[in-house]
Design a protein around this nucleic acid. Structure first.
Lengths: 165, 165
DNA sequence: CTATTTTATATGTATATACATGTAATTAAT
DNA sequence: ATTAATTACATGTATATACATATAAAATAG
């Protein structure tokens, strides 16, 4: 018999939370467990980020683009470079810039030396939003409450994971 | 003057890859650096996952649902429980089950004891796909090449991050 | 026992994402 | 110099996601 009616069983299962769950069986090895934990935790933090930026009508990716632009100190940056430097790879820099342009946070002009390229620059409005966010986005809000040492270890492990590929 | 035409500068910027980039300035502190690295790395791995599952016409989330169902050894599970146990929180279990049902990987029936609930069960087709994937999804494919010890450390750090909230 | 509240799931909507394809400008080839 | 190949960016499409709202069943209140 393929399926049994055991609604009452659900009560029992609900008792163990996600934290218990992730620590548990169904993992081939420690590597897979860490991997799934990574995806899971990043999902959590990513959601927290989304909600954090929402009042500013920004997505996390849009914020990242603004940060990249600010990092250039007024020098224009191409779509391609933004694409390369963005935290989420292979996303659509073009459309992200659309959104930021609509909000007057960036300016997009055709690069005169190569008309295929677009030169993107952050506006004063963009800089102001970043300034506001700088104050709010301290380590507490970012959701990481590790010591400096732990942060370094985590950072190194993540680098090791990425560099493999 | 707000924007300068410096297309040539891009060449220079492109030289440093993402790996260099993430290690660098623009971070308030080690915590924020680790946080952004986490989002970034998880994005990488998540993309790798997406591509890994694509030939099977599954998303990573759909795979996770199937794993949860298999874990119940044939006992049905409600939408709500799936929602709770899924690795990506707050996603739409209802629509995930839609997709899996279309592919005949799960069966959805109204729970007779509580007609609001749906009892979801994995089918033999679903179990077979999982079996195929089990073989492919070894630690190598999952993108983590840490030692056991490192995996444990990473796991602990991630738990610490999540538990804070 | 009827009305209200709560719960479980489904659906609508706006935005995001992955990926394929399109288009125009530049570079390379002959 | 003209054609072909490459590059930079934009757009179309299918799917995913966050969140608000809807619907129907069950629990609770009076």
């Amino acid at each position: 018999m393929l399926y049994v009616y055991t609604c009452n069983l659900h009560q029992h299962l609900k008792v163990m939370g996600l934290e218990e769950e992730i620590k548990q069986k169904e993992f081939k090895n420690k590597q897979q467990r860490a991997f799934l934990n990574l995806i899971f935790t990043a999902g959590h933090l990513s959601l927290a980020q989304t909600r954090f930026f929402k009042p500013y009508h920004l997505s996390a990716q849009q914020y990242n683009v603004l940060r990249i632009l600010r990092g250039q100190n007024g020098n224009p940056v191409t779509i391609g470079l933004i694409q390369e430097r963005m935290l989420d790879i292979q996303s659509n820099a073009s459309r992200l810039i659309d959104k930021l342009e609509e909000k007057n946070l960036v300016i997009r002009i055709v690069c005169p030396k190569d008309k295929r390229q677009m030169d993107i620059t952050i506006t004063n409005d963009g800089l102001e939003i970043l300034k506001e966010l700088d104050d709010k986005l301290d380590s507490n809000e970012s959701g990481i409450i590790l010591t400096d040492e732990e942060s370094d270890i985590l950072n190194d492990l993540l680098n090791k994971i990425r560099e493999k590929k």
